[in-house]
């Protein structure tokens, strides 16, 4: 089934039609918790991308030797390993960004999206496809985080990527954590609306 899927399709699927944040609604905690700036979203996105790609590839490579009965523990172990690696790397080389993300880097280990991709895709498909799939999902997550971060940073602190663009802070509310819920909720609705609109315009044609 996946054989006829090109790498491009696998990537776009993760970014658009099965976006982990807006469509699958998985791993919402960081989307709400630390998406206050584009940079935060980007950093965590990178971390997730790394863990997703490496875990997918690892599991896909060893799919034939993984005993089905210990499938889930193996996934957990794999994810935990790569999370530890990225955690250590970030703590060592990017201490400031790491401090901002706090506990969430470590919490990647409990992200449903990663386990789900391993279970649904990587344990069945070839290494190459798994890589592209992981990349797509990771990018989808990263882009989602960055979009939310963009809105919140722009409205909350009047800046983008830390650069002051508005010169004032329009609505401090948006960098408050509770605004994360609103922004994610409104954006989900917005994407739903686009989908409905798109389908309707297609139907009319």
């Amino acid at each position: 089934m996946a054989n006829d899927k090109s790498s491009m399709q696998l990537i776009t699927r993760g970014i658009l039609s099965e976006n982990p944040i807006f469509k699958l609604a998985l791993s919402m905690c960081p989307a709400v918790g630390i998406s206050t700036t584009v940079m935060n979203g980007f950093m965590l996105g990178i971390a997730v991308l790394f863990v997703q790609v490496f875990s997918s590839v690892t599991i896909s490579t060893f799919k034939n030797v993984i005993h089905p009965r210990i499938r889930i523990p193996t996934y957990t172990l794999t994810i935990a390993t790569w999370v530890t690696v990225i955690d250590l790397v970030l703590a060592a080389y990017l201490p400031e960004a790491y401090a901002k993300m706090g506990i969430f880097v470590k919490l990647i280990v409990a992200f449903a999206i990663i386990t789900m991709r391993l279970e649904m895709f990587a344990c069945k498909e070839p290494v190459k496809d798994s890589f592209w799939d992981g990349l797509g999902m990771g990018l989808g997550f990263m882009i989602g985080m960055m979009v939310i971060g963009f809105v919140r940073e722009l409205l909350g602190s009047g800046a983008i990527f830390g650069f002051d663009v508005l010169g004032f802070k329009p609505l401090l509310f948006f960098i408050l954590p509770s605004a994360g819920f609103f922004v994610v909720g409104l954006m989900m609705a917005f994407f739903n609306w686009i989908e409905v609109y798109y389908k309707r315009s297609k139907g009319l044609k």
Partner: peptide, 15 residues
Amino acid sequence: MGLCFIFTSNAKKHN
């Protein structure tokens, strides 16, 4: 993980 720890611990301290 051990390898990674060894490689990063010094860098961490340094940073």
